[in-house]
Design a protein around this nucleic acid. Structure first.
Lengths: 112, 112
DNA sequence: GATTTATGCCCTATATATAAACCAAAAGGA
DNA sequence: TCCTTTTGGTTTATATATAGGGCATAAATC
C-alpha cells in the first residue's frame, strides 16, 4: 500500500463491522470458548481475534469468516441454508466455478 | 505475520466469498459501472477490486464491505434495514459503543 | 473491418497486518 | 482474602496485501 493511503469507511460499514464483532464475541461466550481457544480453532492469533471482535475493518475477510463460521454467526442472512440456496439458485454459479478453476489449469481452456 | 503461516479456509467460506464476489460483480454490471469506476468510488485500486470479485479471502474486510455497500449488495441479510434493526435490538449495543469510543479518549474513562 | 474501451494479469515498492512474546488488569473460583 | 485464568494492551520482526504501473487480450463501439 504505497503512498500511505488513509482509507475511510462509511458509518454504515463501521457499524456493520462492529455489530459483526459483537455477535462473534457474544456467540463465543455462549459456547464457553476463551479467546485463545477460538483463535486456535480458527488458526489465527489471539490478537487478531481481539481486533475482529472489536470490528476492526482492516482484518482480512477470510479470518473474520472463519471465526464467524466456527461460532455460528451467519453471513449474508440469518438463515443457515441461505448461502447454499444462493449457490444453487444463482445462475452466476456457472460462471463462478470455472473462474475459480481457471487459475489452476492456466493455459488449457478445454473445459467447454 | 512471521513464520510464514499458511492459512487454510473452509470450503464453506471459500464458497461464501466467491459468491459475494460474484454478487458484487453482477451488481456492478447492473449499475453499468466499470471496474475502475467502482474502485475509484470505493477508494481502492482496480487490482484489489478484481481480487474482491474473485472472492479472494485475503482482502481486508473494510474494502469488501465498502464495495458491497456501493453496489447495493447487502451483508448479513437481504433486508436493507436489518443492520440498523440489529443495532437497536441487540443489547450488546450498550457494550458496543463505549468500546469504540474507548480508543479515542484513551486515559479519561469518565464516561460512566 | 478499425478503434476505442474494459478487463485480466503481470510486476515492484512500500505500508502495514500479523504472530509472538510480553505485561497488567480484570474476572472467576477456591 | 488469595490464586488462577482470561483479557486488553503493548512492542517487535516479518510476511504480505496493496497501489500503481504496464501490457496483452477481450469486448464494445464505430
Amino acid at each position: 500500500m504505497p503512498k500511505s493511503i488513509i482509507r475511510t469507511y462509511s458509518r454504515y460499514n463501521r457499524d456493520a463491522s462492529a455489530l459483526l464483532g459483537a455477535l462473534i464475541r457474544e456467540a463465543r461466550h455462549e459456547r464457553k470458548l476463551t479467546a485463545q481457544e477460538l483463535a486456535d480453532r480458527a488458526g489465527i492469533s489471539r490478537g487478531l481475534l481481539q481486533r475482529i471482535e472489536k470490528g476492526n475493518l482492516k482484518c482480512e475477510i477470510g479470518a473474520v469468516f472463519e471465526v464467524a463460521t466456527i461460532v455460528g454467526v451467519k453471513l449474508f442472512d440469518a438463515d443457515e441454508s441461505t448461502l447454499t440456496k444462493y449457490l444453487r439458485q444463482t445462475k452466476e454459479k456457472l460462471a463462478l466455478l470455472p473462474k475459480s478453476v481457471r487459475n489452476k489449469s492456466k493455459a488449457v481452456r478445454d473445459d467447454f
